[in-house]
Every structure is written in structure tokens, then in C-alpha cells.
Design a protein around this nucleic acid. Structure first.
Lengths: 156, 156
DNA sequence: TAGAACGCTGGAGTGCACTCCAAGCAAGCG
DNA sequence: CGCTTGCTTGGAGTGCACTCCAGCGTTCTA
């Protein structure tokens, strides 16, 4: 058994839990053009090519004329990247993770650690945001009170 | 009654709820140097000057030799800015909010709306992060399982 | 078979949020 | 007095994550 293989099983598990990025090709045909992928992911074609250049994507299959043809697996990877991007993870770190996946089984532990660290980052980011939410709520109710005070001033 | 004035009451309310940025000057002396503020906020002196240049800070008091002297009110404002920065709000939007505060009472409604929009943004950002957390947890438990499988392979 | 639409490349450009620099002034200390 | 430390300014530079461009080839529709 290889963990690299497992990784892809895992990403397809991403896909089964909830509506994945929704619109997979129903038949086995697994060859999306760059503009289709752009539409599905919300990224631009420019960005997709750039992701590939910097090693954030594996080398993408090409048609006989050299055009990119993305697979469902590529879409799964992009979905993960999208999630990680939301956490504020720098692109360089995601590239590092992509390299670990490419390097194969012996990077298993490192990948695991990286995921756990990321999880902690996400948790503390959520906590920060909840702190901010509290400040905002305090300010909002203050403004609401001030509004009522002004209104009653006017009717007086 | 002015809402602008209220704003500052509000910010000192920020301060009473929980240890504010902790180390206010105990006496009335309310004149921090730029490097003190840098130490208190975690921002660099560069950034503090830049904030002032772009209008994210009001004009800061100066000593008789022209050096900046920050007040507790400035510190409160910086604390709010720090919170808003955590939400990913662009600096330009924070500058807009600062302008509204400077412009006075008649911007009350606009400020209120801006706060409420920001609140919604924070809520959806939290939701996104919780989605990401779920993905991460799924992946992490997958890796943990894979680790156990590899371990039992080794003992077999 | 024409013309539009889409895709390719390497490299340059953009916008944001800082971050630093040079040259100079002011205060405190031995 | 000289030295160090801290602060001032406008403007230039940095790093990140895209974003676009020129010049070309391919593919689709009429």
C-alpha cells in the first residue's frame, strides 16, 4: 500500500462528502479544458497556468495539440488548494505540500504534521475572528443605541 | 449629543471589556512615543507613520520638537484597526471608515451600515474556515488511519 | 474556407501592504 | 564636546499573488 495512492483516495473522499464542486462530468470523460476549469473553480485561466508553472499543480495532461486537459483528480486538488487558500496559507507552503505529495510515500509523516499545524492555524484564526465579531457586535449595538437616542432627541 | 463623541466613548468601552492592549499608562500621562506604540501594537514604526500618511490614523499630536506623541485614544483606534485587519478588510476600506469618523455626525448611518456589512463578512469567513476545518479533519483522520495501516504492515 | 474563439509561451506589469533608505535634527550622557 | 540613540521626512524598494501582453497556433461554426 502506498500513501500517495491513498492521498488520491482521500481527495475523492473529499468529493463524496457533500456536493463536491458539484458539476463533475457524469460519464467517465475526464478531460476539461482550461476555461471549463476556470468556470468551475472561479480561478482565471491565467492563474491555472501560473499554478502549474510554480509547481502547485502536477503537470497537466495535454491534448495532441498541446492544450491542457484537466481531470477530475486535478479538480479535487484545486478544491483542496482553494480551501487552504481561504485559511491564508501562503502559496509557497501549498507548493511545499504539493512537492511532498509528488515525492511519494516517505514524506507521509511530514505531510501529516503539516496538516495538523494547518488545522491549529485554522482554529486560532477562527478564534481571532470570533474576538473581532465580539468587538463589532459591541460597536453595532452602541450605534443602534446612539440611533435611538438621536431619534428620541428629534421627537422631543 | 454627537455620535462622533460617542464613537470615542465606544472605543474606550472596547478597552474596559477585557484587558485592553493591557499596558495603558497608569497615570494620566497619555503621550507614547512611536517606538512605545510599536512595542504595544506589534506594528513597526514604519507602518505607524504610513498609517498616518494614508489617513488611517488621525493627525497625531507632536512634541515641541516635532516627534509624534500617541494618546490612549490613538491606541484604542489602533486596536480596532488591528481587529479589522484580521478580518481581511482592505486598508482602503478602513481608511474610508476613518474618514467617516472624521467627517462627524452626519456619517452615522453610513458607519453603522459599514459595521453591519463587516459583521456579515466575518460571519461568512468563519463559516468558510469551518468548512476548511472539516476537510482538514477528514484528511487528518485519513492520514492517521494510513499510519496505523503502515504500522501493522510492518509488524506483520 | 473564412473568421471568430480558444489556447499556447515567456516575460513583463499590477496592486496591495508594507518596508527600507538617506540625510538630517534633537536629547541624554561621560 | 563628541557619541549614541531615537525620531523626522519624501520617496524608492520589496514580496506576494496574481494579471496581462504579444505573437503565434488550433479548433469550431457558418
Amino acid at each position: 500500500m502506498t500513501v500517495t495512492e491513498t492521498e488520491s483516495t482521500d481527495t475523492s473522499a473529499d468529493t463524496c462528502a457533500g456536493p463536491p464542486q458539484g458539476n463533475r462530468r457524469p460519464d467517465g470523460a475526464d478531460r476539461y479544458t482550461i476555461s471549463e476549469v476556470a468556470a468551475l473553480t472561479g480561478l482565471t485561466a491565467h492563474t491555472l497556468r501560473w499554478y502549474e508553472r510554480i509547481g502547485l499543480m502536477p503537470h497537466i495532461d495535454r491534448s495532441h495539440t498541446g492544450q491542457r486537459r484537466y481531470t477530475n483528480r486535478d479538480l479535487d486538488w484545486l478544491a483542496l488548494v482553494g480551501k487552504l487558500r481561504l485559511t491564508g496559507m501562503p502559496v509557497a507552503d501549498m507548493v511545499r505540500y504539493a512537492e511532498l505529495v509528488r515525492e511519494g510515500d516517505h514524506t507521509y509523516t511530514e505531510r501529516f504534521e503539516l496538516l495538523k499545524e494547518t488545522r491549529e492555524d485554522v482554529l486560532s484564526r477562527i478564534a481571532e475572528l470570533q474576538g473581532t465579531l465580539a468587538v463589532l457586535d459591541r460597536k453595532i449595538s452602541f450605534y443602534a443605541d446612539a440611533g435611538r437616542a438621536l431619534a428620541s432627541e428629534r421627537t422631543r
